[in-house]
Design a protein around this nucleic acid. Structure first.
Lengths: 343, 343
DNA sequence: CTGTTAGCGCCTTCAA
DNA sequence: TTGAAGGCGCTAACAG
């Protein structure tokens, strides 16, 4: 039933018998402020409904020099298995502030990345969230200096604005504490090492775990080095077990590594959690799929994405601050149930 | 070094000593068509560089009534574990056509969904891709009739435009063929049943597998009913094995179900693939993580996303057609290696 | 309380 | 080959 083609504010005003100014005020919710008569409001509202009027956001943007749109430029966030939760969180926060997200994924190509940023600036986005799939130390794309920017899951020393990161140091402590709370205070090993250049999570997690163990009068017994993938972890742990080693606790760098460790342990007839407790990082779905369910220190991707756009929009919340979001402990059944501690 | 604030085409034209018309022609690549002197082009180009001019896409949109932007409205695609690959494919295809994606995720809320569509129409997107995480039969949101729309991973009987779906029927055949090629022509069971209302994948896969087996003179021996989740599958298959059943081949409705089946089989000391071959659907990362690696019929999410935006942009490619994309067989090691057939 | 008016930056006929 | 001028739809002074 609504309008055949393009209905403009002028049409609405005409039908309601008022000026476009009045109609505009009403549609922008400034009716009370402008003390517009209820009768007029009703007539305008009726015209809007009758005509099926839809404001032209483009025209409004041109006029107000603001687009109610946030750009999200990332390397692989959309395709990434679960880092896409960042997008989801960003989307939710954007919606809450009446904004929409324009996204662009560079798939690792720097040229594409710069062109995406250019495109977004051209579209006059209200700001850009620059995100990476893995926690990385990066060099800030130069173009980003031209607009308000929040770094998501990455950090650049020369970035003037807010940064959102997972608290991997705290996460490392949490992982260790999960073990300590179960009375496991010796023969704890870390599985995995940091492979990607620029990646910063591994070191922090390792440090956090070390610190927590030491502050409990214990210490990390060692690191089983391997890439953060199932196969690598399985082979590394298998070889390590074959040498006669027997851990009481394993802290795996991510859930896939933990799966590899599970398989290696099973291969040697070592039951989890009865003989070895396992904790890992990520808190991905995989953790819940395994048996026993994996106790994992989760990456709060959704919250990170949401916080990033909130920081972009409400510049009050700590400018040029590094926000490290707590990595919550997702309890599974892979840690011996002696005395379960609180997070 | 570039301009301090807002540089307009007028500034560029002024600096180059030409009219905005000329400058506009040059920037839109119509310089040769308009036979503009090389000297003029050079001057304009120089001015652009010197001023750091960036075209105002908003103004252009207003004028041309086209935004070079595609809306993607989905239920959970962004947060979905691997269906986010649809987004990634859509993004790639959009980029290839010099478009950007504006996304919105309703998280299942119909009100939010309609508001998102409204927002996008208001922004004058060039079209909307409406996507769902799981393959669904839906009722078409009414607002979508107001713009060119492509349905992605869902179908509505009254939709006038293109639809992109995975070919689950063919996928079912492929799964069965993978078993048949290995000489497994009896005692083949399907694991899983279609739980979600509106979901259509399960029935098609079942039918496809049935048809393929029957066309080979065999038949499906039965269905082990369970929800498409690890735990449900494990319990269902375990109970079924406990009753003394022994399959030669298992076709699992998705990779998670296959994981559950793996665990149940292991619990009964039945080795994969030596005694039982397993095939599943999805082709998710999980398939490659398991041991033995799972042979899985993959959902071509990336290609689906890409095709959807291509169909949106180039309306030649079959209007109001249902495009069913082939589900490729990802070879793992979960099918007995007698004689490996081709896909 | 409401109307008049002047652009936002760009594209594009129409003239020259 | 280039310039002048109008207008896309909307907002926001500034008057009344």
């Amino acid at each position: 039933v609504p309008g055949t083609r393009k209905v403009t504010l002028t049409d609405v005003a005409a039908m309601a018998g008022v000026s476009t100014t009045t109609a505009s005020y009403i549609l922008n919710g400034r009716s009370t402020q402008m003390r517009i008569s209820p009768e007029t409001m009703r007539r305008v509202q009726a015209a809007v409904d009758a005509l099926g009027y839809r404001p032209n956001h483009t025209a409004r943007s041109l006029r107000t020099a603001t687009s109610s749109t946030i750009g999200v430029v990332s390397d692989y966030v959309a395709s990434g298995m679960f880092s896409s939760a960042m997008l989801s969180g960003a989307n939710a926060a954007a919606r809450a502030a009446d904004h929409l997200l324009v996204i662009g994924e560079s798939e690792g190509d720097l040229g594409v990345r710069d062109r995406l940023i250019e495109e977004m600036l051209s579209r006059r986005v209200d700001g850009i969230v620059y995100a990476t799939r893995t926690t990385l130390e990066i060099e800030l794309p130069a173009k980003l200096r031209e607009t308000r920017t929040v770094l998501l899951n990455c950090i650049a020393t020369d970035h003037p604005g807010p940064v959102v990161l997972p608290d991997d140091l705290g996460g490392g402590r949490t992982a260790a504490r999960a073990l300590l709370s179960a009375g496991i205070d010796s023969d704890v090993y870390m599985v995995g090492e940091d492979p990607t250049p620029g990646a910063i999570a591994g070191d922090l997690r390792l440090r956090g775990a070390r610190e927590e163990l030491e502050s409990a009068g214990s210490s990390l017994s060692g690191v089983i080095a391997c890439e953060w993938e199932v196969g690598h972890a399985r082979r590394a742990v298998d070889a390590w077990l074959r040498s006669g080693n027997r851990p009481r606790g394993l802290v795996c760098m991510n859930d896939r590594v933990a799966l590899g460790a599970y398989e290696a342990l099973a291969g040697h007839g070592v039951p989890v959690p009865d003989e070895v407790s396992v904790v890992s990082f990520d808190g991905s779905d995989l953790a819940t799929w395994l048996s026993p369910a994996l106790t994992s220190v989760a990456l709060p991707f959704r919250e990170m994405g949401a916080l990033a756009v909130e920081l972009l929009l409400h510049r009050s919340r700590g400018e040029k601050a590094i926000h490290r979001l707590t990595m919550p402990l997702l309890m599974g059944d892979s840690v011996e149930a002696r005395k379960v501690g609180d997070a």
